[in-house]
Each structure stands twice: as structure tokens, then as C-alpha cells.
Simulated scan of single mutants.
Amino acid sequence: MIIEIREAYRRALDDFGALVHRIAPEQWENPTPCVDWDVRALVNHMVGESLWAPELLAGRTVAELGDVFDGDLLGDDPPKAFDAAAAAAVHASCAEESLTRVTHLSFGDVPGAEYITELFADALIHTWDLARAIGADERLDPELVETCAAWFAGAEDGYRQAGVIGEQQPLPADPDAQTRLLASWGRRV
């Protein structure tokens, strides 16, 4: 079942946040499937994306914001930083005009619905990355996987050409939907 994109985004952030709250002190430096990112860098990335969302969904540009969300955004309480940023992002995505407002991204202007879909997909895939890095259950919500896969089928080539995902990974015999999605994002399952 394909889920409305704002609901899918909220659920993906909730799932990622649940894992953030399970990170043990000694796990913050664990490597992740994301090249050059440890757990702290991955969570910092997600906090940064969540901080950008309300600004971009309000019509501001990347140029206007500059480097305001660069650097360490986690401080001394990473779960608290994530929770606050995610709540603001979800709130902004639920605004009535969020789906139709033009968002000014670094690569061009897109409708808010497309931007929220990209945020959702990133949160979903990074949920798996974080689970893998901290040794948690790697199963993703099947409805979110289906929603992401339906969108990504049309976006994959563009993502790969832009160099923002890895190469398609080989699939085992009879892969499930999650394995197919992750492999298409360049993840070795």
C-alpha cells in the first residue's frame, strides 16, 4: 500500500529517531554503510536535513541560508537535537501548502511534494544504515519500503547519474522488496 508522502516521511523519521535513542555511548564512532560517515556523522546529517526542511518548505533558498547548518548540529545531547529538528521538519511538511510550494534546492526548483519525497527516502534508507551500524533490527517498515520503491523506480537513474547513490548491488535469488530497494540505493545487504 502506497502511503501519503507526509505520513511516510513522519513514520520514517520516527523509525530513525527510535534508533537514535538506542545508540550506546560507545557506538557513536561506529562505521556506517555510508562511505566516510560514522554514526555521529550520519545522525548529524539527518539533523541537518531536518533543519533545512522548514526553511526550504517556507520558500527560502539555499543561498539565503548559506552555511547556517554546517558543522556539528548535535551538541552534547544528540537524541534531543534529533527530536527537535525532526519535529520541526514534520510540522513544516504537514502545512497545507507544503506539497505545492516551490522549494529552491541546490540543483534547482522542485514542488514541495518532490522535496518531501526525497527527504522521506533519505530517512528510510538511513534508518537501515543506522540499524546496521549499531547492530539493531534492520527490517524496515514494509509499507514505507513499498512507497519508496514505487517513487524510486522513476528517480533511480537521475540519482545514479548525479552520483548521490552507489552502484546497483547484486541481488540474491528471490530477494524481498527491502533487499531490492536497498540494492538499488547501492547498499550491500
Rank of each mutant, 00 (worst) to 15 (best):
I3A: 04
I5F: 03
I5N: 05
Y9Q: 11
R10F: 00
R11N: 10
D14C: 08
D15C: 07
F16I: 14
H21D: 15
Q27A: 13
C34W: 11
V35W: 00
V35R: 12
D36M: 10
D38P: 13
A41D: 14
V43S: 04
V47F: 10
E49S: 06
E49N: 15
S50M: 10
S50A: 15
E55N: 05
E55W: 07
G59V: 07
D70N: 13
L74Q: 10
D77F: 09
P79Q: 15
D83N: 13
A84L: 15
A85C: 06
A95I: 06
S98H: 05
T100K: 12
R101K: 14
L105Y: 02
D109H: 12
P111F: 08
G112N: 11
E114W: 08
T117C: 11
T117S: 13
A121E: 11
A121L: 10
A121R: 10
A123S: 15
W128K: 03
A131S: 12
A133D: 08
E138K: 14
P142T: 13
E143I: 02
L144K: 07
V145K: 04
V145C: 05
E146K: 12
T147R: 05
T147W: 09
A149G: 07
A149N: 09
W151N: 02
F152A: 06
A153E: 15
A153P: 00
A153W: 03
G166D: 03
P170I: 08
S184H: 13
G186E: 08
R187N: 06
R187Y: 02
V189C: 11
